[in-house]
């Protein structure tokens, strides 16, 4: 078993854009780091992952249509929260659509793949 390198952390609640406040019941999925989103994908039960996936699929068209109207740089905190929610969907969809479980089947621990740019100063890390 690979050792756990990150824990699910509860982030301070961030409001979603007004028209998507119906999704607030999924606010645990508003996670600002890749490591945190991967951790939820790996540890939240599949039934809950599916529930999140199903609910997001219903809203997806509206969400993307809305995000298409928002400039690509400097999102508001509400828009960033919505993005982070969608990014969690991306992780969960791998579990639901490809693997039927959180972990990569016949693969390594996906926690190996958390961007080092999220971890502070980077150099040539080999050696």
């Amino acid at each position: 078993m690979a050792e756990k390198t990150a824990q699910i952390t509860t982030e301070p609640a961030v409001a979603l854009p007004e028209r998507f406040t119906g999704l607030v019941r999924f606010s645990d999925w508003i996670v600002s780091t890749e490591a945190g989103r991967i951790e939820r994908r790996l540890t939240v039960e599949m039934a809950a992952c599916r529930e999140f996936y199903d609910a997001m699929m219903v809203e997806l068209d509206d969400i993307i249509t809305y995000l298409r109207t928002r400039p690509g740089a400097d999102p508001s905190p509400q828009d960033q929260a919505l993005l982070n929610l969608v990014f969690s969907l991306h992780e969960v969809a791998q579990a639901v659509e490809i693997y039927d479980q959180g972990a990569v089947v016949d693969g390594a621990d996906v926690r190996l793949f958390t961007s080092v740019l999220e971890r502070g100063p980077v150099g040539g890390t080999n050696g």
């Binding site: 928002r70 740089a73 990014f87």
Partner: peptide, 28 residues
């Protein structure tokens, strides 16, 4: 590329997640 809209960031993250999981399979 620099995202024009936040929807582009969704597309980019989709690409990242898929590619990353693909390489995660490769490591094994």
């Amino acid at each position: 590329p620099r995202p024009d809209t936040l929807a582009d960031r969704v597309i980019h993250d989709l690409m990242k997640v898929r590619f990353r999981d693909l390489l995660c399979e490769d490591v094994t």
